[in-house]
């Protein structure tokens, strides 16, 4: 789809901690090595409840299986992504492609999140320090103030150009 949801550092899907959504019929948990022990703990805590869980550990070699798994889900499955940023982006993007909406995804990020700015001078995107208030475009050198608005089509925060004093 043209303005499909994307994962960005203030995505509404991002949560601090894995928390199962009890309204859903099935829970699909996709995690990487870093999240392994947390996922095990969360599942153990839920073990007496009679709900359907499926888990899948992602690494760089099983992307094909990941896709097949996401496409094979029926309505009512809630997806939990627990991994570092890059794995999360991969899973999130595949999931949206497979028809998941933001309401059906929970994301727990391990380690730093990435943040991108979209330069309004040269219309190119670049990664920035999440703390930075102003940055210089790596493509065209324009100075930019990091704006609070995000475009799902341009996949970055707006960069307002300014001329430094």
């Amino acid at each position: 789809m043209y303005s499909s949801p994307v994962l960005y550092d203030q995505s509404e899907t991002i949560k601090e901690k894995l928390a199962f959504n009890n309204k859903r019929k099935k829970h699909l948990i996709i995690y990487d090595q870093q999240a392994l022990s947390d996922v095990k703990q969360a599942l153990a805590a839920e073990s007496q409840n009679d709900v359907d869980y499926e888990q899948f550990e992602i690494d760089s070699r099983n992307l094909h299986d990941l896709r097949a798994l996401l496409y094979s889900q029926k309505m009512g499955t809630h997806l939990y992504i627990a991994s570092d940023w890059d794995h999360a982006v991969t899973v999130f993007t595949e999931a949206v492609e497979a028809g998941f909406t933001e309401d059906e995804i929970q994301t727990i990020i391990y380690g730093p999140k990435r943040r991108y700015i979209y330069c309004m001078k040269c219309y190119q995107k670049s990664e920035i320090n999440p703390e930075a208030e102003t940055v210089q475009c790596v493509h065209c050198d324009a100075h930019m103030e990091v704006g609070p608005f995000f475009s799902k089509v341009r996949k970055g925060y707006i960069g307002y150009p300014f001329i430094p004093n």
Binding site: M120, K121, I158, Y160, P161, F162, I163
Partner: peptide
Amino acid sequence: NYETMDVWGP
């Protein structure tokens, strides 16, 4: 427009 903020701002 946002593209020319550096120009019209000042």
